[in-house]
């Protein structure tokens, strides 16, 4: 791919990020007043409030406030949490790895199983297998993720108690090393399964329609005509071509994945961004919610950019 178009894409991602920053700044000023918000922080003395007002320029013009907001945010200073007075960036960075574990493993599992199921459905279009997979996916897709998590808890932690109901370690556990890892893994099984299930349906349905599209192409007819076996046609021609648009879907769905994982973590008390969101809502901890919004938006923008670049590498029509 030409350098110019790469730079153009990176540039447009940066512009989008700037929009998010500006949007966030004005959202807070349109709906509330940052100065009175500060008074809700139980960890700030009156003098401390004055210091923050001065530092952030909250008593100055909107332009000064905006300038300071941008420089401070870019430096990673997102203010301090109302709940415990800790810096928001610190709170976020503590929770992020736990969320990335769920999203990472869940996405990988779903992007292997989903397209495979979509392939089976599309290849057997109209048969029983297709109907079963497609209708199952549609139902799965309509379920709220958090309820799916609740169902899994009631099945595998209550009715047939083989897995823990929540948290990421057994409370009071003092095991370290391998024992600790096993404990965390056991706690991660149900949340990861929920994330996988919530993504699976979308990938299945997309892959199915992509496979059906590809099967109509002339090159598939050619491949069949030159005597390739159905298995060869499927492996060499259908799957690679059908996967291409699905890659984009997987990348562009990232925002939805983040939203889903927030509620899933809330169900399992998994100590990630979702759990953080839940406590921040309860405490009306606006700086944390604001930080969460900025962080997740930045992640979505980054992910979209990566998908875009990856896609143009994979698709020879765009590459040249």
């Amino acid at each position: 791919m030409r350098l110019r178009s790469i730079l153009l894409r990176i540039g447009s991602a940066v512009v989008t990020l700037v929009f998010v920053l500006v949007f966030n700044f004005f959202l807070f000023r349109a709906v509330g007043d940052p100065k009175t918000d500060l008074a809700r922080n139980p960890h700030l003395t009156l003098a401390g409030q004055q210091a923050v007002i001065h530092e952030r320029g909250l008593d100055r013009s909107l332009w000064v406030q905006f300038e300071r907001y941008v420089t401070q945010t870019l430096r990673g200073d997102l203010g301090s949490s109302f709940a415990n007075g800790e810096p928001v960036s610190h709170v976020l960075m503590q929770a992020l790895p736990n969320t990335l574990i769920l999203i990472g493993i869940g996405t990988v599992l779903a992007s292997v199983i989903g397209p495979w199921m979509g392939m089976v459905a599309g290849w057997n279009r109209g048969r029983k297998r297709d109907t079963f997979l497609t209708q199952g996916s549609v139902v799965l897709y309509s379920m709220p993720e958090f309820w799916m998590g609740m169902l899994l808890i009631s099945l595998f932690a209550v009715a047939w108690p083989i897995l823990p109901t929540g948290l990421h370690v057994t409370p009071g556990s003092t095991v370290t090393g391998v024992g600790h890892l096993v404990d965390v893994a056991r706690h991660a099984v149900l949340p990861i399964t929920t994330v996988t299930l919530s993504l699976l349906a979308q990938y299945t349905v997309n892959m199915r329609s992509s496979v059906i599209d590809v099967l109509h192409e002339d090159y598939i007819l050619t491949a069949r005509a030159i005597g390739l076996s159905p298995l060869q046609v499927r492996r060499r021609h259908v799957v690679p071509n059908a996967l291409l648009p699905v890659v984009t879907v997987i990348g562009l769905q990232f925002g939805l994945v983040l939203g889903g994982v927030i509620t899933i973590e809330a169900v399992f008390s998994w100590p990630g961004l979702g759990q953080l969101t839940l406590t921040a809502i309860d405490n009306k901890d606006y700086p944390v919610l604001q930080g969460l919004f900025l962080l997740t938006s930045a992640m979505v923008i980054l992910f979209n950019l990566l998908t875009d670049l990856l896609y143009s590498r994979l698709d020879p029509r765009i590459r040249d």
Binding site: T277, L292, T296, S297
Partner: peptide, 23 residues
């Protein structure tokens, strides 16, 4: 339009609903 498509729906609605909730 491109910009609004990027905003992750749950985090933004959570933030906005919580802020607007004051009123």
């Amino acid at each position: 339009d491109d910009w609004f498509l990027v905003l992750p729906l749950v985090p933004i609605t959570v933030l906005a609903a919580s802020l607007l909730g004051q009123r």
